[in-house]
């Protein structure tokens, strides 16, 4: 069997007790040496997977996570997003949740954080450009927010929209993209426990370049699905248009599930480079989260619904 088809058990979510004890250690240590400490704790946090032959997943450093960003609203240059996003205003910030719901509401982002108590989720992030990272997000399940606004019975999809503010986001002046950034999930995908709205990173608030103050994280899909700087969430009964599926329809589908067997028309997706590693790794089906999400796509032709 080719190493590129191997499947590993995949629950990489930090067990709650580990997460809590780590939190105490961090609190005690304060912020000095945060990165080093976390790096030291990380292997313990993910060692429970019991995967045979699968290389370990060690969280990437905050330095790497916050200085190598695809956030085209600022620039297409991954190393220049951080300096350009430095002065981005992420407060005050509201998220409007509406569409086919019984309780439409506009939330202040701090209200969301207070209400839903973000917890740490260590996820792999696989970019469609064939690089990947492991990121300790702070976030809460999207399902919790959706439950609160009570989806109407005809709601089938959840559409997300990023802030449109070309004065703060120079990349939005480019006419080559259909701004603002839009993304979407099918209702059952959105309700899956892995799908979170992230508000933090490494126990702290989200850096601007990583999508502050609130972003989606759907770890079994390519990174571009995990929309940043969300200002609007709308429930719809039609599959929403997304920025990438509008910009290049035959290359970026609505589902965008990580799938080593289905190539992007111009890129093989069989392998990836984990940031910080020298050799390439085989890409895993659903980015290694098949156990949790494969059932969502039963009976679907994933080569067609890419």
């Amino acid at each position: 069997m080719s190493p590129f088809q191997s499947n590993i058990p995949s629950s990489e979510i930090t067990p709650k007790e580990v997460f809590l004890s780590r939190r105490d250690v961090l609190k005690a240590a304060g912020f000095a040496g945060l990165g080093a400490l976390l790096a030291a704790c990380a292997p313990q946090a993910v060692s429970s997977s019991g995967a045979q032959a699968a290389p370990p997943d060690v969280p990437n450093s905050l330095e790497d996570i916050s200085n190598y960003n695809n956030y085209y609203e600022f620039t297409v240059d991954k190393a220049r997003v951080a300096p350009l996003a430095k002065d981005f205003t992420s407060r005050p910030w509201t998220v409007e949740v509406g569409g086919l719901v019984n309780n439409p509401k506009t939330y202040d982002v701090d209200e969301l954080i207070k209400k839903f108590q973000p917890e740490e989720r260590i996820y792999r992030l696989r970019c469609v450009e064939a690089w990947s990272m492991v990121i300790p997000w702070m976030g809460f399940p999207l399902a919790k927010l959706l439950a609160e606004v009570e989806p109407a019975s005809d709601a089938k999809y959840v559409a997300f929209e990023t802030i449109y503010d070309p004065d703060q986001m120079p990349g939005q002046k480019s006419p080559l993209f259909p701004w603002p950034y839009r993304e979407g999930l099918r209702m059952d995908e959105a309700m899956n426990d892995l799908a979170i709205l992230a508000t933090g990173l490494y126990g702290d608030l989200l850096p601007n370049q990583n999508g502050a103050p609130i972003r989606l994280v759907v770890p079994w899909k390519y990174g571009f699905k995990s929309i940043k700087g969300i200002v609007r969430i709308e429930l719809t009964n039609e599959e929403p248009a997304t920025l990438w599926s509008s910009a290049s329809p035959n290359e970026y589908g609505f589902y965008a599930n990580v799938n080593p067997n289905v190539s992007h028309p111009r890129w093989s997706q069989a392998s990836e480079r984990r940031i910080g590693e020298l050799t390439r790794r085989p890409t895993l089906m659903f980015n290694g989260y098949a156990e949790q999400v494969a059932h969502l796509y039963e009976g679907m032709d994933l080569a067609k619904n890419y």
Partner: peptide, 8 residues
């Protein structure tokens, strides 16, 4: 200055 992904 080679970024987090120096090879690329």
């Amino acid at each position: 200055g080679l970024t987090a992904n120096p090879i690329q």
